[in-house]
Every structure is written in structure tokens, then in C-alpha cells.
């Protein structure tokens, strides 16, 4: 029991670390799109690890936590994609480092 709780704590800690890196990414990245990138990946894995840690500490919750993980994996990237698309449609500028924007070139074809 204590072993599971110990491993669970470590997994929780790893999750918190990824969430912190996600926050740092939000602060450091140069434009909206890169911030969304940093935010999405880190929050997804970070939250999955938090839930996994909780499941290890309280095995009775495991099934429900697994369901939450599944919903999260479906909805998290979806909302990021919608945010990115809305930003691009609204003309939010890309950072000057951007090498190429295929979407702007083809924008005439998109209605």
C-alpha cells in the first residue's frame, strides 16, 4: 500500500512539473500559436499524470479517473485546434521568426 502511495506521489510530482513547464512555455513563447503548442502538450500530459498519480494512491477511483483521462485526451487538443484556427482567422500575427505560412497563401481558396 505504502509503495503504491509512494509511486503515486512521484507521478503526481512529475505531473506538476510538466504543468509548471507548460506555464513557463506560455510565458516564454513568442506568439499565440507557439503558446497554444506549449500549453496543450504540457497540460495534457501533466493532467494525465496527476490523474494517474491519484489512481495509484486511491485504486478505488481508478476506473473513473481513466474515463476522465479519455475525455481529456479527446477534448484538450480539440479546443486548442479551435483556438488556433480562430486566432488565424481573426488575423492574429505570427512571430517574425515564422518561416512559412501555407494557410495565409491558400487563404483565398478558403471561404
Amino acid at each position: 500500500m505504502a509503495v503504491l502511495e509512494f509511486i503515486g506521489s512521484l507521478v503526481l510530482l512529475a505531473g506538476a512539473l510538466f504543468l509548471f513547464l507548460g506555464g513557463l512555455g506560455l510565458y516564454r513563447m513568442p506568439d499565440t500559436y507557439n503558446r497554444i503548442q506549449a500549453g496543450t502538450k504540457a497540460t495534457t500530459l501533466g493532467t494525465l499524470l496527476l490523474l494517474l498519480g491519484a489512481a495509484l494512491m486511491v485504486p478505488g477511483w481508478a476506473v473513473k479517473l481513466l474515463l476522465i483521462m479519455l475525455f481529456l485526451m479527446y477534448t484538450n487538443p480539440l479546443s486548442s485546434q479551435v483556438l488556433a484556427r480562430a486566432a488565424h482567422r481573426a488575423g492574429v500575427p505570427l512571430t517574425a521568426k515564422t518561416k512559412h505560412d501555407a494557410l495565409a497563401q491558400d487563404a483565398g481558396d478558403l471561404t
Binding site: 513547464l21 513568442p30 515564422t98 512559412h100
Partner: peptide, 16 residues
């Protein structure tokens, strides 16, 4: 992503 965010140079070369 962690490597990029923690790197002082922030080595991004974004493109769509």
C-alpha cells in the same frame, strides 16, 4: 517542449 522552453536561446523556427 521542455527542452525548448528551458533553453535560454528559445530555439523555435515556426511555420504553418
Amino acid at each position: 517542449m521542455a527542452a525548448i522552453v528551458l533553453s535560454p536561446r528559445l530555439p523555435v523556427e515556426p511555420a504553418i
